[in-house]
Structure formats: structure tokens, C-alpha cells
């Protein structure tokens, strides 16, 4: 059985949980602690990737080149990686500078039905001999057959692998089983999975994906990330070790980093809560959470109702501007349901 590659996106997805306020010290401490731990890549950036620092999804504290340069300085044995969604970032404004800054691994992502919007970027990178993976976000919103079709497009553009993101944490193990098995049977490139933990299944779903033949797991230390968080890498690495699957990870080194560096980085309360559970059930992009809480507060509506409505409207990543509209609509006299939850949330914020 081939080695399972662990992609570490703590400094990318974790940035969501910090409203994109990662500091240079955070990045430096993390990279020093994790360099050479055996993770295949350490990915750094705004939560939504390169070019995503914006009023729409949140401004990052650091500009992206500072993030990349800081990480690069502190990584000797582990590849520096980035994520980018075309439509947010461009070749000229974001990929070219990232290449100059020494990024070695690229994930190019899009909503799961829009793979052809990644062609230009995947081809651009592959033509330069750079290691590039395609990412299909919110994979639960399309049938496994459609996902395969989109993954095959990414394969044809030259991607070295295709990673499915369960961006809403909406997966059950059966869903993971079906789609990963279908991709593994029909693609000749690697298949990866990036779970979220809204309904408490992130590690289980990652393990299911590996059992079905996925060879890349994309997750974070402590599961630190958008919404309820990600697949906790300490857990999945321990499970894989226990079941005899090779990861090449020094688990103690990873656990030490988790103990020594993560408390400083995380700072805030973090993890599953009633809001993220409903958001997972509704199948809404995990990173909407903070925006939904803000809008719920502003308009005096139940954030769970906002998530339900966003789910009905099939909002996709990047549509944060829809949240305010939904909240405003729900707050009109007809849709109003002024519950205790608002009060409880306000005390949390």
C-alpha cells in the first residue's frame, strides 16, 4: 500500500477561525515546530487562499507575501504550499509572486461543478513543472458521477491529484465511501480528502477515505479551522499508525507541536457548537460561520435559521454577501423569530 501523504493546512484553514489574523510569530513558531515532522506540505495563507483577503470574506492581518516569506524562511525540509481559488486570485497578482517567494506546492480549487475555471491556472503551473493539485470544494452538492467528471477535467489539465473538500462538513461515511471509491477506480492520479468536523465525523471520514484508496489527507493540528474545524491530524495519524498504514510522520514531533505551539495560535474558544452542527446539516460552507453570527446579531435573527435558509438557497463559497440579505429578509416582521439564542450568542461573541 502506498504511503499516505498528510497535507497540513493549519496555517491556512486555521486562519478562518482567527478571522484571518495569523501573525508572523504564529507562522514562524508553527513552521519551526513542524518542519521535518513528515507532513508532506505546510500550507499557508488567508483562509480562502491567495487573493482572498477582502471585505467580502475578511481582510487578513498580514499581506500574503509576508505570510509566504515568513513560512519559507522557517521551512527547510517541508514543502511550502498554497491554496488558490480562481476568481479570487489571478496568475499575475498572486501566483507569480508566490512562485517567486518559493512556494513549491499548489492547490487550485473551485466549487465542485466548476472545474473548467481551474484549467488556466493548473496548466500554467504544470507547464512550469510545479507540483499542482486540483481541489473540488463543497463536494456534497453534486452527485459522485458529476464529481468524477469534474475530477477527470482536472486530471486532464495536468493536476497531480484531486482533493475533495467537504467544505460544509456535511458528509456521512457512506457518502465518502461512494465518491472516493468511484474516483480511485477511475482516475490515474492521486485522490485526496479534506474533511470538516461539523457533525463530529471528520477523523472518521478521513479514515474511510483512506480505506477506499485516498492517498492524501488534508487537515490541521487540533482540527483548527473554519466552522467546527477540520480533520485533526494528530488523531488521523494515530489511527493510521495503529492500523498499519504508512504516513512517514513523526507522531511525537507532531504532538509536541500541538501541545507547545497550538495553544498560542488558537487563543479563542474553538470547536463544535450548536451553530456549526446546524450548518453541517444544512450543507453550508463552514467559513460562513463568523459572518452568520455577525449578521444574526445585527438583524436580531436566529443564526441557525440563517444557515437553514442559506442551505435552501444553495449558497457556495465566496457568496458571503448573501448572508446579510438573508438575515435582513428573516428579520422582517413576517420572518422574525426573536429567540433566546441571540442573547446567548451575544454573550459568546
Amino acid at each position: 500500500m502506498s504511503k499516505i501523504k498528510i497535507f497540513d493546512c493549519t496555517l491556512r484553514d486555521g486562519n478562518h477561525a482567527l478571522k484571518h489574523q495569523l501573525t508572523e510569530d504564529n507562522i514562524e513558531d508553527y513552521c519551526l515546530a513542524m518542519d521535518g515532522s513528515g507532513v508532506y506540505t505546510i500550507m499557508v495563507g488567508h483562509g480562502n487562499g491567495l487573493g482572498a483577503s477582502s471585505l467580502q470574506v475578511g481582510l487578513a492581518l498580514l499581506d500574503e507575501r509576508t505570510m509566504l516569506q515568513t513560512a519559507k524562511k522557517n521551512l527547510e525540509r517541508t514543502k511550502l504550499g498554497i491554496y488558490m481559488i480562481p476568481g479570487f486570485g489571478t496568475i499575475k497578482d498572486n501566483l507569480e509572486p508566490a512562485i517567486q517567494d518559493g512556494v513549491e506546492l499548489f492547490e487550485i480549487g473551485c466549487h465542485c461543478t466548476e472545474a473548467d475555471t481551474t484549467r488556466e491556472h493548473i496548466e500554467y503551473l504544470c507547464n512550469r513543472g510545479l507540483e499542482t493539485y486540483g481541489v473540488l470544494m463543497m463536494y456534497h452538492m453534486a452527485s459522485p458521477e458529476k464529481i468524477l467528471e469534474e475530477a477527470q477535467k482536472m486530471q486532464s489539465y495536468g493536476a497531480k491529484g484531486v482533493i475533495l473538500m467537504d467544505s460544509a462538513g456535511a458528509s456521512t461515511p457512506e457518502m465518502v465511501q461512494r465518491v472516493i471509491a468511484l474516483l480511485v477506480d477511475n482516475l490515474h492520479v492521486q485522490v485526496g480528502f479534506h474533511p470538516h468536523n461539523n457533525m463530529g465525523l471528520a477523523v472518521g471520514n478521513a479514515y474511510t477515505a483512506v480505506c477506499e484508496g485516498a492517498t492524501i489527507i488534508d487537515g490541521t493540528l487540533r482540527g483548527f479551522g473554519a466552522g467546527a474545524g477540520n480533520c485533526q491530524l494528530e488523531d488521523i495519524v494515530a489511527v493510521l499508525e495503529k492500523t498499519g498504514k504508512r504516513t512517514g510522520i513523526d507522531l511525537y514531533k507532531m504532538l509536541d507541536a500541538s501541545d507547545q505551539v497550538m495553544p498560542d495560535i488558537m487563543g479563542t474558544e474553538f470547536g463544535q457548537d450548536s451553530i456549526s452542527i446546524v450548518s453541517g446539516q444544512a450543507g453550508v460552507f463552514s467559513a460562513f460561520k463568523l459572518h452568520v453570527l455577525n449578521a444574526a446579531k445585527e438583524f436580531g435573527v436566529d443564526p441557525r435559521d440563517i444557515f437553514k435558509e442559506l442551505g435552501k438557497r444553495k449558497a457556495v463559497g465566496g457568496q458571503e454577501d448573501m448572508i446579510v440579505e438573508v438575515a435582513e429578509k428573516l428579520s422582517s416582521p413576517m420572518g422574525s423569530r426573536n429567540s433566546n439564542v441571540n442573547y446567548q450568542l451575544e454573550s459568546l461573541l
Binding site: S54, T113, K314, A315, G317, G318, D321
Partner: peptide, 17 residues
């Protein structure tokens, strides 16, 4: 300045927003 383009596959299709 910044420009962000999002494609949404929802059915029924959404109006340009």
C-alpha cells in the same frame, strides 16, 4: 482594488448579483 468572481450552480439559477 480587488475583483472577485463567483460562479454559482444553484438550480433554479440565481440572478446576476
Amino acid at each position: 482594488t480587488k475583483a472577485i468572481i463567483v460562479l454559482n450552480p444553484a438550480e433554479p439559477p440565481i440572478t446576476m448579483h
